[in-house]
Design a protein around this nucleic acid. Structure first.
Lengths: 138, 138
DNA sequence: TCAAGATAAATTGTGCACAATTTATTTAAA
DNA sequence: TTTAAATAAATTGTGCACAATTTATCTTGA
């Protein structure tokens, strides 16, 4: 029955940690007019321009139900442009605008500021990182 | 600028892992008519009966905005009872019903089933657990 | 070729999360 | 004492998340 104690759960600290860190992102991302999910979406788009929603979703572990309205908001903010793929009209093409590129410059402070909030050593961070990616691999 | 690559983020795998595991809880918890957040709330209540919303929120890293509607749903399912503290009317007292106690028996399979989904060794799980709790400590 | 199946997004509906504010009650200081 | 500050929940509003379904488009095999 001890398995039903909160302190014996592995998922709970994962869930709590995730939320607590995302909460720390908020004041930093507010300055860029981004939410956390919008931020990680921009991270992918800064690396891979002209991506479709399906690929974006695979990378971010998100589906169209989350991404469709989120991308519309990023388009309203004029950080991205959404067009239809001419060769296959089922696909969208998400691309970065000039404004979106400028945002990347302003975003360089984000990882620096967040780094200050994480009280783990470099080694601990790497260990944690590897364990999390091991869990994510199917 | 490499710090702005998704693969160099520590928060992202935390966020993705948390969601992916909670998704694995869903089919298991469906049988108990519980969502993940309702489940961890029940975990706390099974251990600490007659708790108030503030304390519950501190343990779960949740606020009244999340807990108030969630507790009302658990009350509707008749797993808990919500009463007012007579000594301090600002406080609620959340208590387990007989139905809620029976639910605990049926919930013993949950950690077993979830354990099968986590492809980490016992040692890795312990390391991960400790690192996550270190991050959570202020 | 043309209908059946597959695929990509969008839509719908439920349930968190959380910041910010409000309401009700209690505590404490002048 | 009595009123200002503090505290606990509830409320309000925005933004995910995701399952399930729908719509539009494309592919493929008889």
């Amino acid at each position: 029955m001890d398995e039903l104690k909160l302190e014996n759960q592995l998922c709970f600290p994962l869930y709590a940690c995730s939320k607590e860190i995302i909460r720390k992102y908020k004041p930093i991302l507010d300055k860029l007019d981004l939410t956390y999910t919008q931020y990680i979406t921009m991270l992918v788009l800064w690396e891979h321009n002209n991506i479709n929603v399906k690929t974006l979703g695979e990378v971010l572990f998100l589906d169209s139900g989350t991404l469709t309205p989120l991308l519309k908001k990023l388009e309203q903010k004029e950080y991205i442009k959404i067009t239809h793929n001419k060769d296959d009209k089922r696909n969208l093409v998400i691309s970065i605008t000039e404004e979106g590129k400028k945002l990347k410059e302003r975003a360089t402070v984000v990882p620096v500021e967040i780094g200050k909030c994480i009280n783990l050593t470099k080694e601990e961070s790497i260990t944690l990182y590897k364990l999390l990616y091991k869990m994510l691999r199917k």
